[in-house]
Structures are given as structure tokens and as C-alpha cells.
């Protein structure tokens, strides 16, 4: 369970987030959508500790982690992927995932077999064929799966996914959607930023809409799809050009 309350972030004079509150309950997929530059990635950065919010609190499973360092939040069960891929280019796909599992085994101290965990994750995200390739030689879509795999190798309780499906084709996206549901069913809280509306609408229990740094709507996928404010702000251009 992740809760962010009244989070504000400022870059110089630019207010990137103003008093954003969002909750991602365990066992559910929570969607976060919004036009480009709305502040979605910034919110992820604030939650994971990469940027310091000017105000607001962040709790993970009831523990207040505001102001703590990145690795402490990770040890509270937070994992994330990056929209701009942060892959380890000197390593293979397997090694990428293995590094995450290694690091986890250091702080988790639960005697998980790192090798076995790595292989299990590789199978789970479907990267078996490219496991020995370098990450620079695989397409972006698979790169995003490597990011997901690394996050899963941390056995997170809260998982932040920043546009994980971009670069994937329809078939891959469908598979990916099923995987997400599976992960959530295991009790993980998933917060999903995604531009692929059909994926969001398919898998999310609840969707938050962010525009210009503010939450403008919250609701079930069907409510959001019917919300005129959202249509204006987010789908506005599409809707107009389609008519």
C-alpha cells in the first residue's frame, strides 16, 4: 500500500506538482494518466526519492518514508521502472536482473537463491531467448521488460511502472497486461503510468488523471472515460481531431 499526500515539487520557478495526493492499495493496479509534461514521472521521482518534494508526505505500508534516501525506500518494498530506460549497458539481460537480485539478497537476508530467483524472473517476464544478449542489442519493448524484471527481482510490495508498455506491439502489450494482473493478484500495489489507454482501461481498478501538476479526476476506468473534464484536458486534442 502506497500513499502520497499533498506532494508538491518545484523546479526553479516551475511548479511541477501541486499538492498531489494518490493512493495505490495492495493487490490493485492503480492507473495514473495525463498529457505529456503533466508531472507523472516527477511524481514517481518524488515517491522513489530522486527529487525532493517541497511539501507532502509519502508512506509505504503505513511507514513514513518522506525525506529518506532511495535505498531505504527500496528496502521498504518500493520498486520502480524508468521511462527513460536506465539499463546497465555493460551487462547482459540476465546480469541486469541478477544485479538487482544480488543487491536485494544483501539487505533482505531471507536466503533466497539469487540464481534461481533470476531465472524465475527471466521466465516470468519472457526474456529467456535474449537472456544472454547485451541490453543495447534488444529492442526498447524488451528493454522495458528488463526494467520490469529487475524491479520484480526486488520482490516489491509497491511497484511503480513508468510507461512500461511503450515500444511493445499489441500482442506483447496483451501479454504484459496479463502479467500485471498476475503481479497485482499476488498482493503487490501497482501504480501504472501509461499512454496506451486500452491497456489502462483494461487492467486498472482505479485511475487518477494528472494535468499541469494537479489531480483533476479520480475514478474507475468507465467513470474516467465518461468524464468531460478529462476528455477536455487529456483526450481533448484527439477528440477534436477525430470529430
Amino acid at each position: 500500500m502506497l500513499e502520497a499526500r499533498d506532494v508538491s515539487v518545484q523546479f526553479g520557478g516551475h511548479q511541477a506538482l501541486s499538492r498531489v495526493s494518490i493512493a495505490a492499495p495492495a493487490g490493485q493496479i492503480t492507473g495514473l494518466i495525463g498529457p505529456n509534461g503533466a508531472g507523472k514521472t516527477t511524481l514517481f521521482n518524488a515517491i522513489s526519492g530522486l527529487v525532493t518534494p517541497t511539501s507532502g508526505t509519502i508512506t509505504i505500508d503505513g511507514r513514513d518514508v518522506t525525506g529518506t534516501s532511495l535505498h531505504k525506500r527500496a528496502r521498504c518494498g518500493l520498486a520502480r521502472t524508468f521511462q527513460q530506460l536506465e539499463l546497465f549497458t555493460m551487462l547482459t539481460v540476465r546480469e541486469n536482473i541478477r544485479v538487482a537480485a544480488d543487491i536485494r539478497s544483501r539487505w533482505a537476508r531471507d536466503h533466497t537463491d539469487v540464481g534461481a530467483l533470476t531465472e524465475a524472473v527471466i521466465d516470468r517476464v519472457g526474456l529467456r531467448e535474449v537472456a544472454d544478449e547485451r541490453t543495447t542489442s534488444i529492442p526498447t519493448g524488451q528493454g522495458r521488460l528488463v526494467e520490469l524484471g529487475r524491479a520484480l527481482a526486488c520482490k516489491p510490495r509497491v511497484l511503480l511502472l513508468d510507461e512500461p508498455a511503450s515500444g511493445q506491439d499489441d500482442r506483447e502489450t496483451e501479454r504484459f497486461g496479463r502479467l500485471l494482473v498476475e503481479i497485482a493478484d499476488e498482493g503487490t500495489a501497482v501504480l501504472l503510468v501509461e499512454h496506451d489507454m486500452s491497456l489502462v482501461m483494461d487492467v486498472c481498478h482505479c485511475v487518477h488523471v494528472l494535468d499541469l501538476g494537479q489531480i483533476i479526476a479520480v475514478g474507475t476506468p468507465s467513470e474516467i472515460q465518461a468524464n468531460t473534464v478529462v476528455l477536455d484536458a487529456y483526450l481533448g486534442t484527439d477528440a477534436r481531431s477525430a470529430s
Partner: peptide, 12 residues
């Protein structure tokens, strides 16, 4: 390659 990614796995 990415200190940020390593930190998000819980590495100090």
C-alpha cells in the same frame, strides 16, 4: 551506467 537504478534496488 545508472546509480539511480542501483539505488532503487536498495543499494547504499
Amino acid at each position: 551506467d545508472s546509480e539511480a537504478a542501483c539505488a532503487t534496488f536498495g543499494l547504499n
